[in-house]
Design a protein around this nucleic acid. Structure first.
Length: 103
DNA sequence: CCTGGGGCAGCCG
DNA sequence: ACGGCTGCCCCAG
C-alpha cells in the first residue's frame, strides 16, 4: 500500500518528459514541502514501480547523478540516451531542468 | 574534494 | 502511540 506522500511524489516524477530532469529538492518544492527533499529520495529509493515510473530523471541539485537502484552508471546511460548532456558525471541543469509548473 | 549538521517520511521493534 | 534507524539529499564551511 502506498502512502499519500509516496503517490504524490511518483505522480509528479512521472510527468517529467524525456530529455528533461529535475532535482530532489525541486520535486519537494513542487509538492509544497521544500524541506522534504530527503523523504523524496526515500520514496524513489524504494520505488516499487521501477520500470513503470521512471525515476532516473531526478538528480541532485548540483547536477551530479545521485543514486540509483541499478547503479549510477545505468542512470547516466539512460539520461544520455534520452539526449540529456552529462559532462564529468554532472547534468546540465540550466539546460534540462524541468519546470513542474508546465504541467 | 570532504566533513558536519540539518531535515523528514517510512519502516520496524 | 513512540523512539530509533535509514536514505537516489542539501548547504555552508
Amino acid at each position: 500500500m502506498m502512502s499519500d506522500f509516496e503517490s504524490r511524489v511518483l505522480e509528479l516524477v512521472s510527468n517529467i518528459p524525456e530529455g528533461k530532469v529535475s532535482t530532489y529538492s525541486g520535486v519537494a518544492r513542487a509538492l509544497g514541502e521544500p524541506r522534504s527533499y530527503r523523504a523524496v529520495g526515500n520514496v524513489l529509493a524504494n520505488n516499487p514501480l521501477l520500470g513503470e515510473v521512471l525515476c532516473h530523471r531526478v538528480v541532485r541539485s548540483d547536477g551530479s547523478i545521485g543514486g540509483y537502484i541499478e547503479g549510477r552508471e545505468e542512470k547516466m546511460r539512460l539520461l544520455v540516451e534520452e539526449g540529456v548532456e552529462v559532462r564529468n558525471g554532472k547534468v546540465n541543469l540550466e539546460e534540462h531542468m524541468f519546470d513542474f509548473s508546465e504541467v
